Amino acid sequence: MKFLIIDAYPEKSRAALNDAGMSYAWELYAGMVKRVLPAAEYTVFHPSDVGAEFPGKHNLEQYDGVLWTGADLTIFHTHVPSIKAQIDLAENVFDVGVPSYGSCWGIQMAAAAAGGEVLANTKGREMGIGRKILLTEEGRNHPMMKGKPFVFDAFESHYDIVVKPPEGTVVLAENEFSGIQAMSVTHKKGTFWSVQYHPEYNLHEMSRLTVVREKVLIEGGFFENPEDLEKHVERWELLHSHPDRSDLRWQLGIDEDILNIEIRQQEFSNWVNALVIPYSKEKEQR
């Protein structure tokens, strides 16, 4: 099977994340793919890079799945050519019918490409660990959320949210702070499963991202000063290295939904099994 991984972080942002010790967004997605399908192949596309050549519909047909990583962009800034081109690309994927999956930027892309609306959250940034994400009644019976706890926490780093889901959406999970946290969008020939949170992260990756976002997090009142942030990051990193530390779990309010990769990435595994594999088999029979 072959996947297209779309990492929309601009080159400068990718360098900043990497300099802080964080994996590239595409690498985290490649890791999810290889964990579920070790023999799978993938192509990485950076649509925000100068001179990026966007794949046409014919090129998209070679893939069994399209993956959208997170990104530090604003999707309603459609005056930016590369952002408008990404929305057009997502629309083309819907046209072709290749299954899509994405997190953060991904859920916003699913909404924008199918006619929904994304705006800045009036409550501000959701950062670190999103709390009390609750499956909707539809989510409890939906294949994307099969095996997921009815209430869970997840890694978050976003300011924008889906405020108006497009026609063909099933909202699967919500929380009080950001509203929609997971949804399925069926549009034209395609289906796009997406989450606002980051199943691809772990405590180490979240720690490194927190370091990169130091300035905005202190200005936003998440931390009093750099020393405060550093202490918090150190405790996250310690728990990442020693997940059996029950004292740190209790102090940080972290449980298996954050630490267990099977639970954390359940939605992605379900996407592969419920959408990608059947699509791939159907494509072979054409």
Rank of each mutant, 00 (worst) to 15 (best):
I6A: 07
E11F: 07
K12L: 02
S13R: 10
R14A: 04
L17D: 01
A20Y: 05
S23P: 07
Y24V: 02
Y24I: 04
W26A: 11
W26L: 01
E27I: 02
Y29V: 03
M32V: 01
V33T: 09
A39E: 14
A40W: 01
F45C: 04
S48M: 14
V50T: 15
V50Q: 15
A52N: 15
G56I: 01
Q62D: 11
T69K: 00
G70A: 12
D72N: 07
T74L: 12
F76I: 05
T78V: 13
S82R: 06
D88V: 04
F94L: 12
F94S: 07
D95G: 05
V96M: 00
S100E: 05
C104L: 11
C104T: 12
A110I: 06
A112Q: 08
A120E: 01
T122K: 13
E126C: 06
K132G: 01
L135P: 05
E137Q: 15
E138T: 14
G139N: 10
N141E: 15
D153R: 03
Y159R: 14
V163D: 06
P166A: 11
G168N: 00
G168I: 06
T169V: 03
V171Q: 05
F177Q: 15
S184I: 06
K188S: 12
K189S: 14
K189C: 09
T191D: 00
Y197M: 07
Y201I: 11
N202L: 02
L203D: 07
M206R: 04
L209I: 12
K215T: 14
L217Y: 08
E219W: 08
G221F: 09
F222T: 04
F222G: 10
E224R: 10
N225L: 13
P226A: 14
P226M: 13
K231H: 14
R235A: 13
W236V: 03
E237Q: 12
L239K: 05
S246A: 14
S246M: 09
R249A: 10
Q251Y: 08
L252M: 12
E256Y: 07
Q266P: 00
E267Q: 02
W271N: 03
W271H: 08
W271Y: 07
V272H: 01
V276E: 01
K281N: 05
K281P: 00
Q285E: 15
